[in-house]
């Protein structure tokens, strides 16, 4: 998001509370979902999204327009039930879990959103690509345009995969990989932006990080997608007897050293944790100092306990 904004692209953040409601998030309780939306706004700002440069969109202002629902129907008319079912992975669900008609309306609504909000570029996670591909395929046909899709990587979860080594069959492998993304419903698989330094250290030191493994390695994944975004040089402290400190100027050089066994997983984990702590310190401070943000975080923690 920050990169697109820096590149001079106008950015809108959609707080998809109606989608959360369909997807039964927070027990499908709209009051709680609205609280979560406020919390999310704070989270984006805390992470350095410039407040004056993004527009937060809430469904109520857009969905009261009949033209929106016309778009939902226009999309639905181009989408077979079979294909709509295949897109339910954008809800983080399997086809067999799509039991209600509302589950099939989710994708048409998401595609209609793109045209309702005048979006040229859909920057969403890789898990959302099926909806964006539908938008590209049918956009022009229903009188709109072909949006560009910029799909972002989803961080690998920190836990050990249920099957290791990963199955070689591509379909089976895809299934295992999809099941081990960072997920906030499994707190030990992910780093929360407001985790304390101790929590970050604990989670990172327990993270799955087999020596020399570079393909599926959540710690290297963080190094690639976060550390080298934030740091020109990644410094890894190491005792003299283990070879002394290391410095890497690119992800590729780090990956190579790790693959060659010149860098021990424990040292990589610790150094990565240190960078995460450094990057997330202002975020945690924002949630401590901003009373409104702090309150939304307390509400979220309360919702988690009473769930």
């Amino acid at each position: 998001m920050r990169d697109l904004i820096e590149a001079g692209i106008e950015f809108r953040v959609y707080l998809a509370s109606w989608h959360a409601w369909i997807n039964k998030k927070l027990g499908g309780n709209m009051d709680k979902i609205k609280e979560a939306a406020e919390h999310f706004k704070h989270a984006f700002i805390a992470c350095g999204i410039p407040k004056e440069k993004v527009r937060f969109i809430e469904p109520e202002e857009e969905y009261k327009e009949i033209s929106y629902w016309e778009k939902v129907l226009a999309v639905s008319k181009e989408l077979t039930i079979a294909r709509a079912l295949r897109t339910v992975e954008i809800m983080g669900r399997k086809q067999a879990d799509a039991l209600h008609v509302s589950d099939l309306i989710y994708t048409p609504m998401q595609v209609a959103d793109i045209f309702q909000f005048d979006i040229d570029i859909c920057q969403l996670g890789m898990d959302q690509r099926k909806a964006n591909v539908v938008a590209r395929e049918i956009g022009e046909k229903i009188g709109f345009w072909k949006p560009i899709c910029v799909h972002t990587h989803l961080l690998q979860g920190l836990a050990t995969p249920p099957i290791w080594p990963l199955p070689s069959d591509p379909t089976a492998q895809k299934e295992v990989l999809a099941s081990i993304k960072m997920s906030k419903s499994k707190p030990d698989t992910c780093i929360f932006i407001y985790d304390s330094p101790e929590e970050i250290k604990r989670k990172m030191s327990n993270a799955f990080c087999p020596a020399k493994e570079t393909k599926f390695n959540p710690v290297l994944d963080i190094a690639k997608n976060i550390v080298f975004r934030e740091k020109e040089v990644f410094e890894i402290k190491r005792a003299e007897r283990f070879g002394g400190d290391l410095q890497f100027e690119s992800y590729e050089s780090l990956e190579k050293a790790f693959a060659d066994g010149k860098l021990h997983p424990a040292d990589l984990k610790l150094a990565t944790a240190d960078v995460l702590i450094d990057v997330l310190t202002p975020v945690r401070e924002y949630f401590e100092k901003n009373e409104d943000a702090k309150w939304t975080l307390e509400m979220m923690n309360k919702f988690a306990i009473t769930r």
Partner: peptide, 24 residues
């Protein structure tokens, strides 16, 4: 390529990201 073309034409572009607000 479409993106590059639009940038070259200096078109004003709008991007979005959407999130389901949910709990921890």
């Amino acid at each position: 390529e479409e993106l590059r073309q639009k940038l070259e034409n200096e078109e004003k572009l709008v991007a979005y990201n959407g999130f389901e607000p949910s709990g921890n």
